[in-house]
């Protein structure tokens, strides 16, 4: 079944941060990947975990590349197009590195947990020490290899820190099933359970949520 004729020879290795997400997902489940890009994660999950995977992607090019690999993907965006999916249609709704680019992150988050039994969300952490450094000492908006775009061009309009996100989950009565922070290259940082440390040292944050 896997690596059939439709899938161009993939070495089944994916971006480190995507691998961390993939590791959270049980085989044979139903997965919606929102902002699935070129289908790197979705294709991996389909091949190696035999999930029933669907994607939603804003760029036409991304959608085309996904469908050309045989992945079921729709053109659409998280703010506008989640409303069509029925309640509980998926075991997991994944929103990787996209929350900060949505118009209404809170509504999107609640949609994720309406559609999916669990939501997996990752985002750049603005509580990271370098972001704080940039603001405090350089007096400039944070810029780093993961956020290379200038403030006037960035699609990222709703930045938050790990602590901000945790506070929002509390406000929305969401259960944080798992959480971790990643370094610049997307590898997991082992920092114990101290959220303040994570918030200071994590470049990106990854959460698994349920209602």
């Amino acid at each position: 079944m896997s690596n059939g004729a439709d899938v161009p020879a993939h070495s089944d290795r994916i971006r480190v941060d995507l691998q961390l997400i993939a590791d959270m997902i049980d085989p044979g489940t139903r997965v919606l990947d929102i902002g699935c890009g070129d289908g790197e994660l979705l294709g991996y999950l389909t091949r190696t975990k035999k999930v029933d995977g669907r994607g939603l992607e804003l760029s036409n090019e991304g959608v085309r590349n996904c469908v050309a690999q045989g992945l079921p993907v729709m053109q659409g965006d998280a703010d506008r197009d989640l409303g069509d999916y029925p309640d509980g249609a998926f075991d997991y709704a994944i929103l990787s590195q996209t929350l900060q680019a949505t118009q209404r992150p809170k509504e999107v988050l609640s949609e994720l947990l309406r559609i999916g039994k669990q939501a997996i969300v990752s985002f750049p952490n603005f509580g990271h020490w370098r972001a704080r450094f940039d603001l405090m000492f350089r007096g400039r908006m944070p810029q780093n290899p993961n956020l290379p775009i200038m403030w006037y061009e960035t699609p990222n309009i709703h930045f938050c820190t790990v602590l901000d996100f945790v506070a929002l989950c509390e406000e929305m009565n969401l259960t944080i099933e798992r959480s971790m922070v990643l370094n610049e290259s997307g590898s997991k940082l082992s920092l114990g359970s101290q959220t303040r440390f994570s918030n200071f040292l994590g470049n990106q944050a990854l959460f698994m949520l349920s209602k």
Binding site: D52, R54, V63, V67, V73, M74, Q75
Partner: peptide, 8 residues
Amino acid sequence: SCNVSCVE
């Protein structure tokens, strides 16, 4: 809940 791709 159908399996759908949609491409422009």
